[in-house]
């Protein structure tokens, strides 16, 4: 007889499924995820950075490196929880198959959530590895950043799963990118310090989860004390917790009515 306890870990089988698929294409997947942020980092870091004096007390490319880690973690979590999760839900009907087994809808969503955050961590981790090899941060600091990267992944994966639960088709994701992801990349301190923005925009930036991610990761990678650690971490954790509850509810409404 199986106990209820064994049911509590059933989300892990969903995570394992996605991991097994990823493992088949691991190297191209990591390299593919690495290429885009690296082009930004070196293109802007050296190209634009050459025109700039120091930013925030360091070279521009060093400043940009931390922002790149955050933005690309967000991107990886978002792509996985939108396009990949949507294919499994809507196109391949993988979730329907899983629900015929003794797995609850919440387990499926939680499995996808933790998986997307894991994949985001692999992506963010690869960038951390490269920038510490190139000397833009210290390896020990990069290691400390990993749990934060996972937390960032959890926040954006949960938000992505809400969008997926509401999406009629892939086209719907354009709205999310145009209205949220792109403004967030430009207004969260990834490319320049928030202080450069007019006061109203700075206030607005405080509402964007990516600002809080950057506020945590940049001082850490630069070896500075992290101001308001619990505030920024708390915001990301709250976004993750609230969003995943909403995502589970919306997915239930979509698939189990």
């Amino acid at each position: 007889m199986l106990t209820d306890m064994s049911f509590n870990l059933r989300w892990f089988a969903v995570w394992q499924r996605n991991f097994l698929v990823w493992r088949k294409l691991a190297l191209p997947s990591v390299l593919g995820n690495l290429a885009d942020p690296m082009i930004y980092l070196f293109g802007l870091g050296y190209g634009l950075g050459g025109l700039l004096p120091q930013v925030g007390g360091v070279s521009y490319i060093t400043f940009l490196a931390a922002g790149t880690v955050c933005a690309s973690t967000m991107n990886a979590a978002t792509f996985e929880s939108l396009y990949s999760a949507f294919s499994r839900m809507q196109v391949q009907k993988t979730w329907d198959a899983i629900l015929n087994a003794p797995v609850a809808m919440a387990d499926v969503v939680i499995g996808e959530w933790v998986w997307a955050a894991t994949k985001a961590t692999l992506s963010g981790g690869a960038i951390l590895l490269v920038i510490s090899l190139l000397g833009f941060t210290r390896p020990d600091l990069a290691l400390w950043a990993l749990p934060l990267v996972f937390l960032i992944g959890l926040s954006f994966a949960a938000l992505g799963l809400i969008v997926t639960a509401l999406a009629p088709s892939y086209d719907f994701f354009m709205y999310y990118f145009t209205l949220l992801v792109t403004p967030m990349i430009l207004l969260s301190g990834v490319f320049f310090p928030l202080a450069q923005l007019p006061p109203a925009a700075q206030l607005l930036a405080q509402l964007l989860p990516l600002s809080h991610a950057v506020a945590l990761v940049r001082p850490l990678l630069l070896g500075n004390p992290v101001p308001d650690l619990w505030l920024h971490g708390g915001v990301l954790a709250s976004v993750a917790a609230v969003a995943i509850v909403v995502a589970i509810r919306l997915t239930k409404r979509r698939l189990l009515s």
């Binding site: 089988a13 499924r17 899983i98 087994a101 003794p102």
Partner: peptide, 12 residues
């Protein structure tokens, strides 16, 4: 085989 393995895991 992987289809069967992955599905069996859903049953614990």
């Amino acid at each position: 085989a992987e289809n069967l393995l992955v599905f069996g895991r859903y049953f614990g």
